[in-house]
Design a protein around this nucleic acid. Structure first.
Length: 263
DNA sequence: AAATTATACAACCGCCGCATT
DNA sequence: CAATGCGGCGGTTGTATAATT
């Protein structure tokens, strides 16, 4: 009835409400949120109950201030992933997406923050360069992950090659290779590994081409122990915005999505 | 000490994708 | 197919508390 929906409580939760919700979930388990308000005897909507549990009452949630390494990880992951809070929180045990988002917005957003370690130990300073951070690169040249390719299948257009890291690789007619991950966790793992092991990922301007840039991976091998970590691979950008001078690149769009660019 | 402003974060809102009917 | 419901997500707001004037 309309009347009951109008009288549903909003705002801060009381201790008694918390107690009722906790008891209900202890008894019936998580899920079936539609039934929770009546089961728990709460005059709250199901969404409010779910949020209260997932963001606050769940005993798995870690309380207290963020540790320095957690903050560092947030900064790094945010550089790679943008505002994908749930993905970032997924790499921080016990922290919720809401916590991470709140922390970032209140502590890190307006301040100029950088990860603690020094990036760029090997970059040739004479080469015009910029950093592009994006969690996804749809097309990679065939030199990118040579070790995981099956030579026999190179001519196929939809070859899927197993890799120790669960990446699916497919080769198109023009010998470009695209890869994808079965789920986002693996995608994050890759960028996480790149980030942790390489400190930073650098995309350097390739002088002889307007729409290709080189990616130099520095440091340890990111994902596949057998691959040559010093491989330089070409990213073919299907769509590059009007900026001609890579050295002053302010914006870069790929598949309609902006990349974060750090000059 | 009171008033004002800033900060932190819990909670809400609207949107989206997916599953089910 | 479309309609509906649910859960998840990110943006934003509301409010209690802390800091400042």
């Amino acid at each position: 009835m309309e009347e009951s929906s109008l009288s549903v409580r909003k705002g801060a939760w009381t201790e008694k409400e918390d107690f009722l919700l906790k008891k209900c979930i202890e008894k019936y388990g998580e899920g079936k949120w539609r039934k929770v308000p009546s089961r728990a005897g709460l005059n709250r909507c199901q969404k409010s109950c779910r949020l209260r549990w997932t963001n606050y009452l769940n005993p798995d949630i870690k309380r207290g201030a963020f540790a320095a390494d957690e903050v560092d990880l947030i900064i790094r992951l945010h550089k790679l992933l943008g505002n994908r809070w749930s993905l970032i929180a997924g790499r921080l045990p016990g922290r919720t997406a809401n916590d991470v988002k709140n922390y970032f917005n209140t502590h890190l957003l307006k301040k100029k923050v950088t990860p603690s370690s020094d990036p760029n130990p090997h970059l040739n300073p004479s080469t015009p360069s910029f950093r592009v951070v994006k969690p996804w690169s749809p097309i990679i040249s065939k030199n990118t992950f040579p070790i995981i390719l099956d030579e026999d299948k190179k001519n196929n257009t939809t070859t899927t090659t197993p890799a120790s890291n669960n990446i699916s690789v497919s080769i198109s007619n023009d010998n470009n290779i695209s890869y994808c991950f079965p789920d986002e966790d693996d995608e994050v793992m890759l960028w996480d590994n790149l980030m942790m092991n390489e400190k930073e990922v650098y995309y350097q301007q390739q002088q002889d081409s307007m729409n290709k840039i080189n990616l130099s991976v520095l440091g340890d091998r990111p994902i596949n122990e057998e691959m040559d970590y010093s491989t330089t691979c070409k990213f073919q950008l299907p769509e590059l915005v009007e900026e001609q001078n890579y050295g002053n690149l302010d914006e870069l769009y790929l598949d309609g999505e902006p990349w974060n660019v750090f000059n």
